[in-house]
Design a protein around this nucleic acid. Structure first.
Length: 233
DNA sequence: AAGTCGGACAACCGCACATTT
DNA sequence: CAAATGTGCGGTTGTCCGACT
């Protein structure tokens, strides 16, 4: 599946390549990544194309500095979810897992957990992170899956998200999904009350300024989330 | 002005899981 | 049911660039 990488370009993406990829996505839409290099006329692996789109070219991506509200949310989410960057990114509108991961490592990680040395073996780190995540026996939903199922540490979980081609149906689904999202968070928080007993981390001035959060175009109700967070403190 | 160091971020890699054949 | 294929994720690496000496 990974395919032969022989002859495939691996250097930084050029403006021309970006343009070709954009045109291809515009024309055919996202997905079917294995066809993208051929369709776009790119000498890149399908994975490379997917990453470039998801991490950089996608117009929904918010670029620039993380706001203090985002940082605060990130700190809290990381405390809950550990290194499950895609889940964290899913709660930070416009931010990608790669963004979140990089930001954490460069800005926050050093302060938070000097736990692993560079000598730590990759598998060990993964297992450690996984076991920590397992401590939080959480039922999460799958944000991008069509079948609404996902796996967490080998545990199959039932998801909340569904997909529809019908607009009206989609809007109804979205509403129910947002409800589901709140339920998911509530469940998460209820199961992990202890995680908060040591109080909030690096609370900023913006904490009290809930209104600043309202400007975030979020898929879920941020205020409810804040309330749930704060209930646990 | 040149060399180096370190931070930031884009991109790659390997693996796991889901889906299809 | 097994193998092949496609996709997503987290960790790591490479490169760029500004700060510092």
């Amino acid at each position: 599946m990974e395919g032969s990488s022989e002859g495939l370009r691996k250097a930084a993406w050029t403006a021309v390549e970006d343009s070709l990829l954009r045109q291809c996505i515009d024309k055919y839409g996202e997905g079917k990544w294995h066809k993208v290099p051929l369709r776009a006329g790119l000498n890149r692996s399908c994975k490379s194309c997917r990453e470039r789109w998801l991490n950089y070219l996608n117009p929904n991506i918010k670029r620039g500095e993380f706001g203090s509200d985002e940082v605060d949310l990130l700190l809290r989410l990381h405390k809950l979810l550990r290194n499950r960057w895609s889940l964290i990114a899913g709660r930070l509108p416009g931010r990608t897992a790669n963004d979140v991961k990089n930001y954490w490592k460069t800005h926050l990680g050093k302060k938070q957990e000097p736990r692993f040395t560079s000598k730590t073996r990759k598998r060990d780190v993964a297992c450690s992170a996984a076991s920590q995540a397992q401590e939080l026996s959480v039922t999460k939903h799958q944000t991008q899956s069509y079948n609404g199922r996902s796996q967490l540490n080998g545990q199959t979980e039932v998801g909340l998200f569904q997909v529809s081609n019908n607009d009206e149906e989609q809007s109804q689904l979205l509403n129910s999904q947002i409800d589901g999202e709140s339920m998911w968070w509530k469940s998460l928080l209820e199961q992990n009350q202890e995680a908060y007993t040591d109080g909030p981390v690096a609370i900023t001035d913006d904490e009290a300024d809930i209104t600043s959060m309202e400007s975030m175009s979020s898929l879920f109700d941020v205020q409810k989330l804040w309330i749930l967070f704060n209930e646990g403190d």
